[in-house]
Amino acid sequence: MELRQSSLSSRNLLVPLGSVVLALLVGAVFVLIAGENPITAYRVLFVESFGSVRSIATTLQRATPLIFTGLGVAFAFRCGLFNIGAEGQLYVGAIVAAIIGVSFGDLPRVIHLPMAVAGGMAAGGIWAAVPGILKAKLGVHEVINTIMMNFVAYYLTDFLVTGPFHGGRWAPETDRVFPTAALERIFLPTRLNSGIILAVVAIAVVYVILWKTKTGYEIRAVGFNPGAAEYGGISVARNMVLAMVISGAVASLAGVEQVLGVHGRFIQRFSPDLGFMGIAVALLGKNHPVGVFFAAVLFGALRTGGAAMDRLTDVPRELIVIIQAMIIMFVAADELIRRLFARRGKA
């Protein structure tokens, strides 16, 4: 099963790297359509995302939420579950973190911040548990239910942010969270914040859970072959629900980071498809925590460079979205990629 490979050997890197190259080639066609030289456009893209310490910091900041959603989606994949609901999970996580963040102003930082983070994670975990339970108990495919839960999350947070938790300003957003709940900025003037440290910790934790604990072994066993796992005495239902809860909790950190570290408040529909991009990050990273990190950095760089490209050339930033979509498609079409590049290798 392509989705469940584990090691990051050089042979396994062929498909991700080949996919990125092919996607950039397709992107080049669109650059030409926009009337710009692809080499010029891609140079701007690269220089503005990796060319200075400051641009690298911005790239890492853009990568941070994608690490969380990518890890979350990858974790579910390891259990054979397709969590397309990271978007909804990060929204409920974000709104709960914001609600805790704007309340309890008299708490010390050591309690307030962890409380806001944990609250967000709990919300995301519960949100993901629903499709997990429906899958485990009733056999309903999690894909449709996670999609449906996304929309319920949009409307629920729309309601909360325009109703009971609408802030003092006119815009549909909450008030600013108290400084005691904020993830502090670590590289001004960029918006890089301590969320990136949390992300690195999450990578390590997910790795340890999956490969160094009995729970992780069971989750992977269910993902590898549910029938055999059940026969071997592993509860498929229990592990599916658990995998979804962890997946949702990790993915929701993307929303938590955006609220507590970047915007300082919950803004209605703030996410530029971070949850869906998490699917791309997970696939490109081969569902491995380290792979997820590099894939997220690549996507963060694309977003950072794309914004600059939009400013400095005639190429609209949506080129990045096109490239990201192509990466998803090509990574999943591994048969196509292998054939294309293997033939070239032999010649």
Partner: peptide, 14 residues
């Protein structure tokens, strides 16, 4: 599901 997701994202960008 992956293909459908890619198409949805592509359409927005395109």
């Amino acid at each position: 599901v992956v293909s459908g997701t890619a198409i949805n994202i592509f359409a927005v960008g395109f």
